[in-house]
Computed example of a mutant assay.
Amino acid sequence: MQNSLPPEFDRGVVTTVHQGDCQVSDVKDLTYSTVLGSCISACVRDRIANVGGMNHFLLAEQSGSSRDRYGASARYGAFAMEQLINKVLSRGSGKKANLEIKVFGGGKINSALDDVGAKNIEFVRDFLLAEGYSVASEDLGGNFARRVLFKPASGRAFVKRLDSEAGANVAREEIVLAKRRAVVVPASDDIELF
């Protein structure tokens, strides 16, 4: 099997970041790895402290709540972003200005998840803008799944676009997860989920 990574991208110890995970480290020979379809993965690094992390989240359909533009399920995405940023800040320099943010995913890989990827892209961009962050780099959208490798200490990232068979497997897994995580919102708007 031929290695498709550039020779200078030594994987070292690989830790998989699954849907719903948030991992942070400063270990130099560590690489985080995840596979994304319509999900989003953010990679955040403190450039001064050389501490970084990766999350992986899937935002299901909107809940329909009139008070929440994204719906209750998007709060899972907001929680995932806040959790990652706060972990990197607490283990790093503590200064938002030192953070470098890269975002990946949001592909349209299955008609059953037709608009999930686009909503995820809109969500992550809006969230970062509202929090005052800029994106250092991104690989978002498209009609393919992708594998993302991220070295938290150096901030290097590598993205490989996956073939349609791998994308179909990712799509099936995401559909199962989306159904399992569906949030039922009561008819009354006086309850706020968080």
Rank of each mutant, 00 (worst) to 15 (best):
A182G: 06
V44D: 01
N120Q: 13
P7F: 02
R147A: 09
A74E: 09
S188Q: 06
S90D: 02
A182H: 13
V13C: 05
A145Q: 06
F104G: 00
F127H: 08
R181Y: 09
S63N: 04
G77V: 02
A60T: 11
V124I: 14
G94N: 10
I109Q: 00
L140W: 01
G71S: 09
D189Q: 15
D190I: 11
A74Y: 09
E122W: 08
I191Q: 14
R125C: 08
F57P: 01
V27L: 15
G155S: 06
E82K: 01
T31V: 08
V176R: 13
A187Q: 14
D190A: 04
S111I: 11
D190H: 15
E8M: 12
N110E: 07
K179L: 13
N120M: 13
E165T: 14
V24R: 00
V103R: 01
I101H: 03
R75Q: 13
S134Y: 05
A112S: 13
K102I: 07
G167F: 04
V35A: 04
V44A: 07
R75F: 08
M54Q: 13
V184M: 15
D29T: 08
K96E: 14
S134M: 14
S38P: 06
I109K: 00
F158M: 08
V159M: 07
G141F: 01
A60C: 11
Q2H: 14
S25L: 04
F123V: 01
V176M: 12
A153P: 06
K151R: 11
D29L: 05
K151E: 13
L177R: 12
F79C: 07
P7V: 03
S66K: 01
V184A: 15
K151F: 06
A42K: 00
L140H: 02
V159P: 10
Q19E: 15
M1A: 11
S164E: 13
K96S: 10
L113D: 10
R161P: 03
Q2V: 11
K119D: 14
P152A: 07
S33C: 08
V35S: 06
L149D: 15
N3P: 06
V185Q: 11
A80I: 02
V183Y: 02
D26S: 12
L128N: 06
L149T: 03
A118M: 06
A118T: 12
N98F: 09
G94E: 05
A178F: 09
V13E: 03
D190L: 08
L30W: 04
R67A: 13
R47L: 10
L5P: 04
F104Y: 12
N50H: 12
L36R: 04
K95W: 00
F150L: 07
N120S: 11
V14T: 09
D46H: 04
D10E: 10
K108F: 10
V35H: 02
V184E: 13
V27C: 13
G53T: 03
K102Y: 02
L59T: 06
L129I: 08
G12N: 02
A60H: 00
